[in-house]
Write a protein that binds this DNA or RNA. Structure first.
Lengths: 219, 219
DNA sequence: ACGGGGCTTTCAGCTTACTGTCAGGTATTT
DNA sequence: AAATACCTGACAGTAAGCTGAAAGCCCCGT
Protein backbone atom coordinates (compact mmCIF):
# COMPACT_ATOMS: atom_id res chain seq x y z
CA UNK A 1 0.00 0.00 0.00
CA UNK A 2 1.30 3.39 -0.98
CA UNK A 3 0.55 6.43 1.10
CA UNK A 4 1.16 10.13 0.68
CA UNK A 5 1.92 11.94 3.91
CA UNK A 6 1.45 15.72 3.76
CA UNK A 7 2.86 17.10 6.99
CA UNK A 8 5.12 20.09 7.59
CA UNK A 9 6.06 19.31 11.20
CA UNK A 10 9.42 17.57 10.87
CA UNK A 11 9.32 15.47 14.04
CA UNK A 12 5.75 14.29 13.63
CA UNK A 13 6.26 13.54 9.95
CA UNK A 14 9.24 11.40 10.81
CA UNK A 15 7.38 9.45 13.46
CA UNK A 16 4.43 8.83 11.17
CA UNK A 17 6.62 7.90 8.23
CA UNK A 18 8.50 5.38 10.34
CA UNK A 19 5.32 3.87 11.72
CA UNK A 20 3.85 3.45 8.27
CA UNK A 21 7.07 1.96 6.92
CA UNK A 22 7.25 -0.45 9.85
CA UNK A 23 3.88 -1.73 8.82
CA UNK A 24 5.16 -2.57 5.38
CA UNK A 25 3.61 0.31 3.47
CA UNK A 26 5.43 2.59 1.07
CA UNK A 27 5.18 6.25 2.07
CA UNK A 28 6.07 9.50 0.36
CA UNK A 29 6.38 12.40 2.69
CA UNK A 30 5.97 15.99 1.48
CA UNK A 31 5.74 19.11 3.56
CA UNK A 32 3.62 21.48 1.55
CA UNK A 33 0.68 21.62 -0.78
CA UNK A 34 2.54 22.25 -4.01
CA UNK A 35 4.72 19.19 -3.52
CA UNK A 36 1.62 17.22 -2.61
CA UNK A 37 -0.06 18.35 -5.80
CA UNK A 38 2.94 17.34 -7.86
CA UNK A 39 3.15 13.94 -6.19
CA UNK A 40 -0.53 13.34 -6.80
CA UNK A 41 -0.11 14.13 -10.48
CA UNK A 42 2.70 11.66 -10.83
CA UNK A 43 1.66 8.85 -8.59
CA UNK A 44 -1.42 6.85 -7.77
CA UNK A 45 -1.76 6.59 -4.00
CA UNK A 46 -3.85 4.21 -1.95
CA UNK A 47 -4.29 6.63 0.93
CA UNK A 48 -3.47 10.26 1.71
CA UNK A 49 -2.64 11.51 5.20
CA UNK A 50 -3.26 15.22 4.99
CA UNK A 51 -2.33 17.87 7.51
CA UNK A 52 -4.55 20.95 7.32
CA UNK A 53 -2.19 23.67 8.51
CA UNK A 54 0.51 23.87 5.87
CA UNK A 55 3.03 26.62 5.04
CA UNK A 56 1.54 27.33 1.65
CA UNK A 57 -2.13 26.96 2.44
CA UNK A 58 -4.90 24.92 3.90
CA UNK A 59 -5.05 21.18 3.26
CA UNK A 60 -8.79 21.46 2.81
CA UNK A 61 -8.25 23.30 -0.44
CA UNK A 62 -6.15 20.46 -1.80
CA UNK A 63 -8.76 17.97 -0.66
CA UNK A 64 -11.50 19.89 -2.42
CA UNK A 65 -9.40 20.02 -5.55
CA UNK A 66 -8.81 16.28 -5.36
CA UNK A 67 -12.46 15.55 -4.97
CA UNK A 68 -13.48 17.95 -7.74
CA UNK A 69 -11.19 16.10 -10.09
CA UNK A 70 -13.13 12.93 -9.37
CA UNK A 71 -10.28 11.32 -7.44
CA UNK A 72 -11.62 8.86 -4.88
CA UNK A 73 -8.40 8.01 -3.04
CA UNK A 74 -9.23 7.82 0.68
CA UNK A 75 -8.01 10.74 2.73
CA UNK A 76 -7.37 10.89 6.47
CA UNK A 77 -6.93 14.46 7.68
CA UNK A 78 -4.60 15.30 10.53
CA UNK A 79 -5.79 18.22 12.53
CA UNK A 80 -5.01 20.00 15.75
CA UNK A 81 -7.34 19.44 18.63
CA UNK A 82 -8.56 22.94 18.95
CA UNK A 83 -9.91 23.24 15.45
CA UNK A 84 -13.20 21.43 15.52
CA UNK A 85 -14.47 23.43 12.61
CA UNK A 86 -11.59 22.09 10.52
CA UNK A 87 -12.55 18.55 11.32
CA UNK A 88 -16.08 19.09 10.17
CA UNK A 89 -14.98 21.06 7.12
CA UNK A 90 -12.59 18.25 6.30
CA UNK A 91 -15.28 15.61 6.45
CA UNK A 92 -17.61 17.83 4.42
CA UNK A 93 -14.87 18.34 1.85
CA UNK A 94 -14.69 14.61 1.36
CA UNK A 95 -12.22 13.27 3.90
CA UNK A 96 -12.79 9.69 4.91
CA UNK A 97 -11.61 10.06 8.49
CA UNK A 98 -9.59 12.30 10.70
CA UNK A 99 -7.05 12.11 13.46
CA UNK A 100 -6.62 14.80 16.05
CA UNK A 101 -3.11 15.67 17.14
CA UNK A 102 -1.56 14.46 19.26
CA UNK A 103 -2.63 10.93 18.53
CA UNK A 104 -1.55 7.43 19.36
CA UNK A 105 0.42 5.72 16.65
CA UNK A 106 -1.65 2.63 17.22
CA UNK A 107 -4.71 4.74 16.55
CA UNK A 108 -3.14 5.89 13.28
CA UNK A 109 -2.52 2.29 12.32
CA UNK A 110 -6.07 1.33 13.16
CA UNK A 111 -7.41 4.20 11.08
CA UNK A 112 -5.25 3.31 8.13
CA UNK A 113 -6.44 -0.26 8.37
CA UNK A 114 -10.07 0.77 8.79
CA UNK A 115 -10.00 3.18 5.84
CA UNK A 116 -8.24 0.73 3.59
CA UNK A 117 -10.79 -1.92 4.47
CA UNK A 118 -13.58 0.44 3.56
CA UNK A 119 -11.78 1.50 0.42
CA UNK A 120 -11.44 -2.01 -0.82
CA UNK A 121 -15.15 -2.27 -0.15
CA UNK A 122 -14.47 -5.31 1.92
CA UNK A 123 -15.03 -4.96 5.67
CA UNK A 124 -14.16 -8.60 6.18
CA UNK A 125 -10.41 -8.93 6.26
CA UNK A 126 -10.48 -12.59 5.24
CA UNK A 127 -10.69 -13.16 1.53
CA UNK A 128 -10.30 -16.10 -0.78
CA UNK A 129 -7.72 -15.94 -3.56
CA UNK A 130 -7.96 -19.10 -5.57
CA UNK A 131 -7.35 -21.88 -3.05
CA UNK A 132 -5.68 -19.43 -0.67
CA UNK A 133 -7.22 -17.97 2.46
CA UNK A 134 -5.85 -14.47 2.92
CA UNK A 135 -6.18 -12.54 6.16
CA UNK A 136 -5.45 -8.96 5.21
CA UNK A 137 -5.10 -7.75 8.79
CA UNK A 138 -2.83 -10.52 9.85
CA UNK A 139 -0.65 -10.51 6.73
CA UNK A 140 -1.33 -14.20 6.77
CA UNK A 141 -1.93 -16.56 3.89
CA UNK A 142 -2.77 -20.21 4.09
CA UNK A 143 -3.76 -22.97 1.74
CA UNK A 144 -5.83 -25.70 3.32
CA UNK A 145 -4.62 -24.70 6.75
CA UNK A 146 -0.95 -24.62 5.80
CA UNK A 147 0.72 -21.24 6.24
CA UNK A 148 2.42 -19.69 3.23
CA UNK A 149 5.10 -17.21 4.09
CA UNK A 150 5.41 -14.07 2.03
CA UNK A 151 8.34 -11.77 2.59
CA UNK A 152 7.61 -8.10 3.12
CA UNK A 153 8.21 -7.32 -0.55
CA UNK A 154 6.18 -10.22 -1.76
CA UNK A 155 3.38 -9.16 0.52
CA UNK A 156 3.48 -5.60 -0.77
CA UNK A 157 3.30 -6.85 -4.34
CA UNK A 158 0.48 -9.20 -3.50
CA UNK A 159 -1.39 -6.40 -1.79
CA UNK A 160 -1.12 -4.19 -4.86
CA UNK A 161 -3.05 -6.78 -6.84
CA UNK A 162 -5.58 -7.36 -4.08
CA UNK A 163 -6.39 -3.71 -3.96
CA UNK A 164 -6.96 -3.50 -7.67
CA UNK A 165 -8.75 -6.74 -8.35
CA UNK A 166 -8.69 -7.72 -11.99
CA UNK A 167 -6.83 -4.59 -13.08
CA UNK A 168 -3.68 -4.71 -15.14
CA UNK A 169 -0.91 -3.07 -13.16
CA UNK A 170 2.07 -1.91 -15.19
CA UNK A 171 5.56 -2.56 -14.00
CA UNK A 172 6.08 1.09 -13.19
CA UNK A 173 2.84 1.16 -11.18
CA UNK A 174 4.05 -1.83 -9.24
CA UNK A 175 7.38 -0.17 -8.72
CA UNK A 176 5.64 2.89 -7.36
CA UNK A 177 3.65 0.67 -5.05
CA UNK A 178 6.61 -1.23 -3.72
CA UNK A 179 9.16 1.49 -3.37
CA UNK A 180 9.20 4.94 -1.85
CA UNK A 181 9.39 8.00 -4.03
CA UNK A 182 12.87 8.48 -5.37
CA UNK A 183 13.86 4.89 -4.83
CA UNK A 184 14.64 3.38 -8.19
CA UNK A 185 15.34 -0.14 -9.14
CA UNK A 186 17.90 -0.81 -11.84
CA UNK A 187 17.10 -4.21 -13.07
CA UNK A 188 14.28 -6.60 -13.72
CA UNK A 189 13.38 -6.61 -10.05
CA UNK A 190 9.64 -6.46 -10.62
CA UNK A 191 9.82 -9.44 -12.91
CA UNK A 192 11.85 -11.30 -10.34
CA UNK A 193 9.32 -10.60 -7.64
CA UNK A 194 6.39 -11.50 -9.81
CA UNK A 195 8.13 -14.77 -10.47
CA UNK A 196 8.68 -15.37 -6.80
CA UNK A 197 5.12 -14.53 -5.90
CA UNK A 198 3.84 -16.83 -8.61
CA UNK A 199 5.59 -19.74 -7.01
CA UNK A 200 3.61 -19.16 -3.84
CA UNK A 201 0.22 -18.56 -5.36
CA UNK A 202 -1.96 -20.88 -7.35
CA UNK A 203 -0.74 -21.71 -10.81
CA UNK A 204 -2.12 -19.17 -13.26
CA UNK A 205 -3.40 -16.87 -10.53
CA UNK A 206 -1.11 -14.06 -11.61
CA UNK A 207 -1.25 -13.36 -15.33
CA UNK A 208 1.09 -11.49 -17.65
CA UNK A 209 -0.45 -9.00 -20.07
CA UNK A 210 2.46 -8.65 -22.40
CA UNK A 211 3.50 -5.11 -23.06
CA UNK A 212 1.16 -3.80 -20.37
CA UNK A 213 1.89 -5.49 -17.06
CA UNK A 214 0.36 -8.07 -14.78
CA UNK A 215 -3.08 -8.89 -13.54
CA UNK A 216 -4.35 -11.08 -10.78
CA UNK A 217 -7.16 -13.24 -11.95
CA UNK A 218 -10.55 -12.13 -10.73
CA UNK A 219 -10.99 -12.82 -7.05
CA UNK B 1 -23.29 -9.23 29.04
CA UNK B 2 -24.46 -6.11 30.85
CA UNK B 3 -22.62 -2.83 30.51
CA UNK B 4 -22.84 0.53 32.17
CA UNK B 5 -22.04 3.44 29.90
CA UNK B 6 -21.18 6.69 31.69
CA UNK B 7 -21.01 9.38 29.03
CA UNK B 8 -22.40 12.90 29.01
CA UNK B 9 -21.95 13.65 25.30
CA UNK B 10 -25.37 12.90 23.85
CA UNK B 11 -24.33 11.99 20.30
CA UNK B 12 -21.42 9.84 21.29
CA UNK B 13 -23.38 8.09 24.00
CA UNK B 14 -26.08 7.25 21.50
CA UNK B 15 -23.62 5.85 18.98
CA UNK B 16 -21.89 3.73 21.59
CA UNK B 17 -25.14 2.51 23.08
CA UNK B 18 -26.40 1.48 19.66
CA UNK B 19 -23.14 -0.30 18.83
CA UNK B 20 -23.19 -2.25 22.06
CA UNK B 21 -26.86 -3.13 21.65
CA UNK B 22 -26.25 -4.25 18.09
CA UNK B 23 -23.71 -6.67 19.42
CA UNK B 24 -26.30 -8.23 21.69
CA UNK B 25 -25.16 -6.73 24.98
CA UNK B 26 -27.42 -5.00 27.45
CA UNK B 27 -26.39 -1.39 28.15
CA UNK B 28 -27.50 1.18 30.68
CA UNK B 29 -26.52 4.67 29.73
CA UNK B 30 -26.14 7.40 32.33
CA UNK B 31 -24.68 10.84 31.84
CA UNK B 32 -23.23 11.76 35.20
CA UNK B 33 -21.51 10.34 38.22
CA UNK B 34 -24.37 10.35 40.63
CA UNK B 35 -26.58 8.34 38.25
CA UNK B 36 -23.66 6.01 37.69
CA UNK B 37 -23.27 5.52 41.42
CA UNK B 38 -26.95 4.75 41.81
CA UNK B 39 -26.89 2.27 38.94
CA UNK B 40 -23.88 0.50 40.38
CA UNK B 41 -25.64 0.13 43.71
CA UNK B 42 -28.66 -1.42 42.06
CA UNK B 43 -27.17 -3.51 39.33
CA UNK B 44 -24.26 -5.86 38.82
CA UNK B 45 -22.50 -4.98 35.60
CA UNK B 46 -20.04 -7.02 33.60
CA UNK B 47 -18.23 -3.99 32.23
CA UNK B 48 -18.20 -0.25 32.78
CA UNK B 49 -17.42 2.26 30.04
CA UNK B 50 -16.43 5.35 31.92
CA UNK B 51 -15.97 8.83 30.55
CA UNK B 52 -13.62 10.94 32.64
CA UNK B 53 -14.93 14.43 31.98
CA UNK B 54 -18.40 14.50 33.47
CA UNK B 55 -20.67 17.40 34.49
CA UNK B 56 -20.56 16.52 38.14
CA UNK B 57 -16.97 15.46 38.50
CA UNK B 58 -14.14 13.30 37.30
CA UNK B 59 -14.72 9.66 36.40
CA UNK B 60 -11.46 8.75 38.10
CA UNK B 61 -12.99 9.51 41.45
CA UNK B 62 -15.82 7.06 40.79
CA UNK B 63 -13.32 4.48 39.65
CA UNK B 64 -11.29 4.88 42.82
CA UNK B 65 -14.42 4.58 44.89
CA UNK B 66 -15.38 1.41 43.04
CA UNK B 67 -12.00 -0.15 43.56
CA UNK B 68 -11.89 0.86 47.21
CA UNK B 69 -15.17 -0.93 47.74
CA UNK B 70 -13.56 -4.12 46.47
CA UNK B 71 -15.56 -4.12 43.26
CA UNK B 72 -13.65 -5.86 40.46
CA UNK B 73 -15.91 -5.15 37.51
CA UNK B 74 -13.71 -4.36 34.51
CA UNK B 75 -13.60 -0.70 33.53
CA UNK B 76 -12.69 0.83 30.18
CA UNK B 77 -12.14 4.55 30.45
CA UNK B 78 -13.04 6.90 27.63
CA UNK B 79 -10.79 9.88 27.51
CA UNK B 80 -10.15 12.88 25.29
CA UNK B 81 -6.97 13.08 23.32
CA UNK B 82 -5.40 15.94 25.15
CA UNK B 83 -5.44 14.29 28.53
CA UNK B 84 -2.66 11.74 28.51
CA UNK B 85 -2.16 12.13 32.21
CA UNK B 86 -5.78 11.05 32.72
CA UNK B 87 -5.14 7.83 30.87
CA UNK B 88 -2.26 6.95 33.11
CA UNK B 89 -4.17 8.05 36.20
CA UNK B 90 -7.08 5.92 35.04
CA UNK B 91 -4.94 2.83 34.67
CA UNK B 92 -3.32 3.50 38.02
CA UNK B 93 -6.72 3.89 39.59
CA UNK B 94 -7.63 0.42 38.42
CA UNK B 95 -8.99 0.76 34.91
CA UNK B 96 -8.50 -2.25 32.72
CA UNK B 97 -8.16 -0.44 29.45
CA UNK B 98 -8.85 2.87 27.79
CA UNK B 99 -10.08 4.33 24.56
CA UNK B 100 -9.13 7.76 23.32
CA UNK B 101 -11.81 9.85 21.64
CA UNK B 102 -12.53 9.93 18.85
CA UNK B 103 -12.34 6.20 18.34
CA UNK B 104 -13.50 3.68 15.84
CA UNK B 105 -16.53 1.73 16.91
CA UNK B 106 -14.81 -1.43 15.78
CA UNK B 107 -12.00 -0.59 18.17
CA UNK B 108 -14.53 -0.22 20.96
CA UNK B 109 -15.97 -3.61 20.09
CA UNK B 110 -12.53 -5.14 20.09
CA UNK B 111 -11.77 -3.69 23.49
CA UNK B 112 -15.04 -4.88 24.92
CA UNK B 113 -14.36 -8.32 23.52
CA UNK B 114 -10.80 -8.33 24.85
CA UNK B 115 -11.80 -7.24 28.33
CA UNK B 116 -14.74 -9.61 28.42
CA UNK B 117 -12.55 -12.47 27.34
CA UNK B 118 -10.32 -11.71 30.22
CA UNK B 119 -13.11 -11.60 32.74
CA UNK B 120 -16.11 -12.97 30.99
CA UNK B 121 -18.25 -13.82 33.95
CA UNK B 122 -15.57 -16.26 34.91
CA UNK B 123 -13.51 -14.96 37.81
CA UNK B 124 -10.49 -17.01 36.75
CA UNK B 125 -10.51 -17.06 32.98
CA UNK B 126 -8.03 -19.59 31.78
CA UNK B 127 -7.06 -19.79 28.17
CA UNK B 128 -4.90 -22.28 26.40
CA UNK B 129 -1.86 -21.11 24.48
CA UNK B 130 -0.23 -24.12 22.92
CA UNK B 131 0.55 -26.42 25.86
CA UNK B 132 0.35 -23.51 28.27
CA UNK B 133 -2.51 -22.73 30.62
CA UNK B 134 -2.75 -18.97 30.96
CA UNK B 135 -4.63 -17.29 33.78
CA UNK B 136 -5.28 -13.79 32.53
CA UNK B 137 -6.36 -12.46 35.88
CA UNK B 138 -3.45 -13.78 37.84
CA UNK B 139 -0.82 -13.18 35.20
CA UNK B 140 0.01 -16.79 35.72
CA UNK B 141 1.21 -19.33 33.22
CA UNK B 142 1.73 -23.01 33.72
CA UNK B 143 2.60 -26.00 31.64
CA UNK B 144 1.26 -29.29 32.92
CA UNK B 145 0.91 -27.85 36.38
CA UNK B 146 4.41 -26.38 36.47
CA UNK B 147 4.48 -22.61 36.92
CA UNK B 148 6.31 -20.52 34.35
CA UNK B 149 7.38 -17.17 35.64
CA UNK B 150 7.07 -14.14 33.41
CA UNK B 151 8.55 -10.84 34.50
CA UNK B 152 6.40 -7.75 34.19
CA UNK B 153 7.86 -6.87 30.81
CA UNK B 154 7.58 -10.38 29.52
CA UNK B 155 3.97 -10.50 30.62
CA UNK B 156 3.19 -7.18 28.92
CA UNK B 157 4.70 -8.45 25.70
CA UNK B 158 2.84 -11.72 25.99
CA UNK B 159 -0.40 -9.88 26.61
CA UNK B 160 0.05 -7.75 23.50
CA UNK B 161 0.00 -10.91 21.43
CA UNK B 162 -2.90 -12.40 23.32
CA UNK B 163 -4.94 -9.30 22.63
CA UNK B 164 -4.30 -9.53 18.91
CA UNK B 165 -4.39 -13.24 18.25
CA UNK B 166 -2.72 -14.12 14.98
CA UNK B 167 -1.97 -10.52 14.04
CA UNK B 168 1.49 -9.39 13.09
CA UNK B 169 2.58 -6.76 15.60
CA UNK B 170 5.40 -4.54 14.44
CA UNK B 171 8.24 -3.71 16.76
CA UNK B 172 7.03 -0.16 17.14
CA UNK B 173 3.54 -1.40 17.98
CA UNK B 174 5.01 -3.62 20.65
CA UNK B 175 7.05 -0.72 21.89
CA UNK B 176 3.91 1.38 22.17
CA UNK B 177 2.31 -1.41 24.11
CA UNK B 178 5.15 -1.96 26.53
CA UNK B 179 6.20 1.57 27.20
CA UNK B 180 4.46 4.76 28.15
CA UNK B 181 3.67 7.29 25.49
CA UNK B 182 6.79 9.18 24.59
CA UNK B 183 9.14 6.71 26.22
CA UNK B 184 11.64 5.47 23.66
CA UNK B 185 13.98 2.59 23.78
CA UNK B 186 17.34 2.97 22.16
CA UNK B 187 18.36 -0.49 21.34
CA UNK B 188 17.10 -3.86 20.24
CA UNK B 189 15.16 -4.25 23.46
CA UNK B 190 12.09 -5.63 21.77
CA UNK B 191 14.14 -8.31 20.08
CA UNK B 192 15.74 -9.18 23.39
CA UNK B 193 12.37 -9.54 25.06
CA UNK B 194 10.95 -11.56 22.23
CA UNK B 195 13.91 -13.87 22.58
CA UNK B 196 13.35 -14.23 26.31
CA UNK B 197 9.65 -14.82 25.93
CA UNK B 198 10.30 -17.45 23.30
CA UNK B 199 12.36 -19.43 25.73
CA UNK B 200 9.39 -19.63 28.05
CA UNK B 201 6.70 -20.41 25.51
CA UNK B 202 6.30 -23.42 23.31
CA UNK B 203 8.80 -23.76 20.54
CA UNK B 204 7.47 -22.00 17.46
CA UNK B 205 4.63 -20.35 19.32
CA UNK B 206 5.97 -16.87 18.62
CA UNK B 207 6.85 -16.34 14.99
CA UNK B 208 8.98 -13.72 13.30
CA UNK B 209 7.53 -12.11 10.19
CA UNK B 210 10.72 -10.68 8.95
CA UNK B 211 10.54 -7.04 8.00
CA UNK B 212 7.09 -6.71 9.55
CA UNK B 213 7.20 -7.90 13.15
CA UNK B 214 6.10 -10.85 15.20
CA UNK B 215 3.01 -12.96 15.43
CA UNK B 216 1.77 -15.43 17.96
CA UNK B 217 0.47 -18.52 16.28
CA UNK B 218 -3.27 -18.75 16.27
CA UNK B 219 -4.56 -19.64 19.66
C1' DA C 1 23.56 0.12 56.10
C1' DC C 2 24.92 -3.37 53.16
C1' DG C 3 24.89 -7.15 50.07
C1' DG C 4 22.61 -10.24 47.05
C1' DG C 5 19.33 -11.28 43.73
C1' DG C 6 16.32 -10.11 40.12
C1' DC C 7 14.87 -7.15 36.45
C1' DT C 8 15.70 -4.14 32.68
C1' DT C 9 18.22 -2.13 29.01
C1' DT C 10 22.11 -1.81 26.20
C1' DC C 11 25.84 -3.67 23.64
C1' DA C 12 28.12 -6.43 20.42
C1' DG C 13 29.03 -10.22 17.77
C1' DC C 14 27.00 -13.81 15.28
C1' DT C 15 23.25 -15.86 12.30
C1' DT C 16 19.67 -15.76 9.05
C1' DA C 17 17.25 -14.71 5.17
C1' DC C 18 15.77 -11.08 2.30
C1' DT C 19 16.77 -8.11 -1.50
C1' DG C 20 18.29 -6.63 -5.87
C1' DT C 21 21.23 -7.60 -9.65
C1' DC C 22 22.89 -10.41 -13.22
C1' DA C 23 22.74 -13.38 -17.00
C1' DG C 24 21.13 -16.91 -19.72
C1' DG C 25 17.09 -18.93 -21.35
C1' DT C 26 12.08 -18.73 -22.97
C1' DA C 27 8.06 -16.76 -25.15
C1' DT C 28 5.87 -13.51 -28.09
C1' DT C 29 5.47 -10.31 -31.73
C1' DT C 30 6.72 -8.37 -36.03
C1' DA D 1 14.78 -14.74 -38.20
C1' DA D 2 15.27 -10.86 -35.29
C1' DA D 3 13.91 -7.99 -31.70
C1' DT D 4 11.78 -7.39 -27.56
C1' DA D 5 9.51 -8.62 -23.35
C1' DC D 6 9.54 -11.66 -19.83
C1' DC D 7 11.11 -15.61 -16.64
C1' DT D 8 13.95 -17.72 -13.35
C1' DG D 9 18.18 -19.69 -10.96
C1' DA D 10 21.97 -18.12 -8.55
C1' DC D 11 24.85 -15.07 -5.98
C1' DA D 12 26.75 -11.27 -3.06
C1' DG D 13 25.75 -7.85 0.05
C1' DT D 14 23.52 -6.36 3.83
C1' DA D 15 19.53 -5.56 6.59
C1' DA D 16 17.02 -7.78 10.02
C1' DG D 17 17.02 -10.56 13.74
C1' DC D 18 18.96 -13.42 17.78
C1' DT D 19 21.19 -14.09 22.01
C1' DG D 20 24.86 -14.07 25.71
C1' DA D 21 26.65 -11.01 28.78
C1' DA D 22 27.48 -6.79 31.34
C1' DA D 23 26.07 -2.72 33.84
C1' DG D 24 22.84 -0.15 36.44
C1' DC D 25 18.99 0.10 39.39
C1' DC D 26 15.69 -1.40 42.73
C1' DC D 27 13.97 -4.22 46.33
C1' DC D 28 14.30 -7.24 50.09
C1' DG D 29 16.43 -9.67 53.84
C1' DT D 30 19.88 -9.67 57.30
Amino acid sequence: MRLLLVEDAEGLGEVIRDQISDEGHAVDWVNNLSHAGASLQNTQYDLILLDLMLPDGNGIDLLKKIRRSGETTPVIILTARDQLSDRIAGLNAGADDYLVKPFDLSELSARIAAVSRRYSGNPNPIIKVGTLDVDLNKHFISREGVAINLTAREWALFEAFIQHPGNVLSKSQLEDHLYAFGAEIESNTIEVYVSRLRKKLDKGQLETVRGLGYRMRSL
